[in-house]
Write a protein that binds this DNA or RNA. Structure first.
Lengths: 151, 151
DNA sequence: GACATATAGTTAGTTATGCAACTAATATAA
DNA sequence: TTATATTAGTTGCATAACTAACTATATGTC
């Protein structure tokens, strides 16, 4: 039993540090080298807005796995960079809808290419089957922990 | 091709946000509920010192996948909590060796139990084979990106 | 309509991250 | 041995994370 547990502990340190950090750093580095002055956290917000513009901050938090305070500041910074604007919802004035500006639109193609290039570097020699298993395991890890919160 | 690339992009967001964050949050929450006033980042340093006491800051950075500035501040905070002390190496006075204090030692058992409990929650219904695949994929992702730096 | 409750977002405070520029000590080379 | 390069660690600056307390709006109940 303790043997099994120790392996799980090791997995934790792997999840938390190694690959995640390495991919994030590489992507950030590739952005910088291309002259893109955005962080990967900012990019992760833009990524979801390119898929669907005009999301609420709440919804952006859900999709990017961040709490609302983090989203507030990410949007603050993106607004300061003139990449998004907040628009109060007419139906519910508590809600801010976040829209891309014209300045943000040209970034989409370049960031996609750099993200794909980074993932190609990261996933070199890793099979589609392995990727599917990792995605599936992560989804189940997430569900395991989130369901617990509802009990 | 674009189809394949899109899936890889999705994997990135999974790696960067979902499972990692969920596990880290859960572990932090479990520590807090047990009255442990340390962060998981601080724990990750203690974890390696429990395995081998008296590591240099450099070595701690390598083992925890952090740069030296981050280690400097983590050790600052751990020193302020009286959990570790810096001792200048006698062979090479540039080097700080980091040692656990007596106050840190009782934490080991409790943090191990909480980490194991957290991993058991997170990895519920996930098989050993799947865990091995995830670890293996992460090691190869890390190697893919790190080898590139040496070229 | 009035009061309690829930929801969306902001702010304050603390910790952590990365990069770049810096100091101090050691190693290398002329 | 002196000049140069490398290494270990620190500090300043900007961004980002989480929690908890807060404001403002909306909803539900009596």
């Amino acid at each position: 039993m303790s043997n099994n547990q120790f392996k799980r502990g090791e997995l934790y340190s792997v999840i938390n540090g190694m690959a995640t950090t390495a991919v994030a750093r590489r992507l950030q580095k590739n952005y910088r080298q291309a002259g893109l002055e955005i962080t990967i956290e900012q990019w992760s917000v833009l990524y979801h807005l390119w898929k669907e513009d005009g999301l609420s901050q709440q919804e952006l938090g859900i999709r990017t796995f961040r709490d609302k305070a983090s989203i507030t500041r990410l949007i603050d910074n993106l607004e300061r960079l003139s990449l998004v604007t907040r628009v109060a919802s007419k139906e519910d004035r508590r809600i801010n809808l976040v829209y891309l500006t014209d300045a943000a639109k040209p970034l989409q193609q370049l960031t996609y290419e750099l993200a794909n290039q980074t993932m190609n570097e990261a996933l070199h020699n890793i099979t589609k089957e392995e990727i599917e298993i990792v995605k599936n395991v992560f989804q189940r890890v997430y569900d395991n922990l989130m369901n617990k919160d509802l009990i």
